[in-house]
Design a protein around this nucleic acid. Sequence first.
DNA 1: GACTACGTACCAACTAGTTGGTAATATTGA
DNA 2: TCAATATTACCAACTAGTTGGTACGTAGTC
Lengths: 201, 201
Amino acid sequence: MPRTTSKPNAKTQLLDAALGVIRTKGYSGTTVDELCAAAGVTKGAFFHHFKSKDDLAVAAADHWSEVTSALFAAAPYHELADPFDRVIGYLEFRKALLRGGVPEFTCLVGTMVQETYETAPPIRDACERCISSHAATLEADIEAAIAARRLSPEWTAASLALHTQAVLQGAFILAKAKGGPEIAAESVDHLIRYVRLLFKR
Amino acid sequence: MPRTTSKPNAKTQLLDAALGVIRTKGYSGTTVDELCAAAGVTKGAFFHHFKSKDDLAVAAADHWSEVTSALFAAAPYHELADPFDRVIGYLEFRKALLRGGVPEFTCLVGTMVQETYETAPPIRDACERCISSHAATLEADIEAAIAARRLSPEWTAASLALHTQAVLQGAFILAKAKGGPEIAAESVDHLIRYVRLLFKR
DNA sequence: GACTACGTACCAACTAGTTGGTAATATTGA
DNA sequence: TCAATATTACCAACTAGTTGGTACGTAGTC
């Protein structure tokens, strides 16, 4: 039987705590002591499970990948028959997630990669994997939508999928600067409008 | 006579150094000692001109505003007669700036606001001002383009101007994750395509 | 009785910020 | 005009607190 995702041991407590603390204070701005306090464990436990702070960051990115992919896998838009509807459904779902405080809807790996892309390649690569693998799930539906509508676009499904991630990441930055999700939702609206225009007729 | 922007004093040396160092290592990841070393001054000079590290961050955001607004004010797209052409010219100009190493074309305030939006309101506000004032310059051309083409769009010039900033900020994150400007350029291409579609006919 | 999973106590290095001083530059006053 | 004075700009050394990381002890378990 799988030994994961059960009994709240120190490791998963730390990983779950990291998602919230790092999204709130950034990676460099988060201390190991803060993570331990938020997780309710001691520093001995931290360095028993992770050999360094950077090691936890990589594990947190992977954990984020699992948490978010489970969230999206369970979302209702997958049940739509038309692949184009699934693409729009995905974007509407992303828009619906823009609720609550800013740290609650922003992206862990987008935050981390900003600070670590030059100084910590393993963290950068973990963030890149997370973003790209998530985009790949959308790319499949875009590809299917192109085929279903018999389009021959000058753009690729891969680039459009990554573009959606760029818009979302940028929307998070605006939300952080302006203190709320409203501006982010407007950017997602523009993105939805763009995708509809691309597939029009 | 103006005493600014001449003779390389410690203050401007520090502000110029901050643009590069913070974009490379993030704000929290940048130490005061590193800034001093990059600027070629001592810590005494630092705290003579800035009362804290956060104070420098605010000044750096304002400095960034001045540097970038001068860059865009001097760009050739302003000479185009048609406001729509100026909007496209702006986006093409942004795309052309995507050259060199990642720290060279990414945005200081986008990087800083990610880390400080919850912990340092003065820095967040300085970043917000920088982004919004830059977007406002584009908003004027968008508004004029709407009027010139007699459109009655369901979107506003302000939201489209901010959306362009979201796309660019998100494109920078992808560039950081993937280690180069190519993916960012593709996102700007999608944005240009979107704007053309909005103004079509 | 070995091994995993922690907790407690601790440290060396680093961090932002201070202190007390000096050189250069303005400002003043006769 | 020029010395006296004040102010600004800057430097080197220091400090109090923080940081990531370690050493070692212990409770439970197979």
